[in-house]
Amino acid sequence: MAELAQALVIPAGEQRVIHVFDLNMRAEQARFLREPGALAQVLGVDEIDLDHVEIFPISDLEGLGLRGYLRDGCGISPEQLAADAQALAAVEDYVLLLRSRALRGKETQLTPASQIRHIGDYHEAGADWSSLPTNPAETPESAKLYSAQRPSPRAARSRARRIGAAIFAVVIALILLVVLMLAT
């Protein structure tokens, strides 16, 4: 049985984190990890959602490299990648990118097999939903509630009558059409 590496604890509810692993194994073994249950077994967990896992050879990245892929393809900031630049550059064969969603929000303890070396965890850039507080004095008049000009009561009644008359005309036309169709 293969020796197990140090356990990696993924907290419950973790979001937008990519866990990067170097796969020190033959190409056939790395490709086999895409099969249902295989990756979960070598990571020491019950199940993994393979829709949120990437396993590929570094050679697929050609001139971009792993750092470039994580930065440009996954939205990881260059500052995060700088700390592990040498480890990322040292990956030669296959790499495993495990997104938080692959673990379905559960607290998970990964115990990867000895051929799987954890390189680092990187936070994906997310949408910034924050906004600057607005000064009520600077809010334009058109953006304030109930700021539109209200029609006069006479204009409102006139509009309501026109809408009612139009609906009445459509209903009568439909009734006449049905009567004519039944008569023929």
Rank of each mutant, 00 (worst) to 15 (best):
T134S: 06
T139R: 12
L81R: 03
F56P: 08
P140G: 03
A82F: 11
K106P: 11
E14R: 09
E92T: 14
A160Y: 00
R26Y: 04
V171A: 08
A155Y: 02
D84S: 14
V20S: 04
M181R: 02
Q115T: 09
A85V: 06
V171C: 02
F56W: 08
A148N: 09
R34C: 09
A90F: 07
E79V: 09
P153A: 00
I167H: 03
D93K: 15
D60T: 15
P136C: 11
E28A: 12
L23S: 04
S142F: 12
S147L: 10
D72I: 07
M1K: 04
R154Y: 00
G44V: 07
R67Q: 15
R71E: 15
A169P: 03
Y146F: 14
R150W: 07
A2C: 00
A90M: 08
A155M: 08
I172F: 02
A169E: 04
A165D: 05
K106E: 15
L174H: 02
P136N: 13
D49P: 07
A137S: 14
R159K: 07
R104S: 13
R34N: 12
L132Y: 01
S130E: 04
G37I: 06
A7I: 05
A155V: 02
R150T: 05
G120L: 09
S131T: 04
A38R: 10
D46C: 09
L98I: 11
P78N: 12
A113D: 12
P136G: 07
A90E: 12
Y122A: 05
I116V: 15
L8A: 04
Q149R: 08
L64C: 06
E107F: 06
A38C: 10
R154T: 00
R117M: 06
A125E: 04
R154W: 01
E14T: 05
Y122W: 03
V170M: 06
E92K: 15
L4H: 02
S142C: 09
S130Q: 08
A87E: 13
Y69H: 15
A166F: 01
Y94K: 07
C74L: 15
E62H: 12
Y94W: 14
D46S: 13
A12Y: 06
Q6G: 02
D121K: 07
L88C: 12
A40Q: 02
A27P: 10
G75Y: 06
E141P: 03
R162F: 02
E79F: 03
R154V: 01
Q80N: 07
L50C: 08
P36Y: 07
P78C: 06
L176G: 10
H118C: 08
A173M: 01
E28S: 10
A169H: 00
A113E: 12
L132I: 02
E92H: 14
D93C: 12
G105Y: 10
T134E: 14
D60C: 11
P151R: 03
H19Y: 08
R117Q: 14
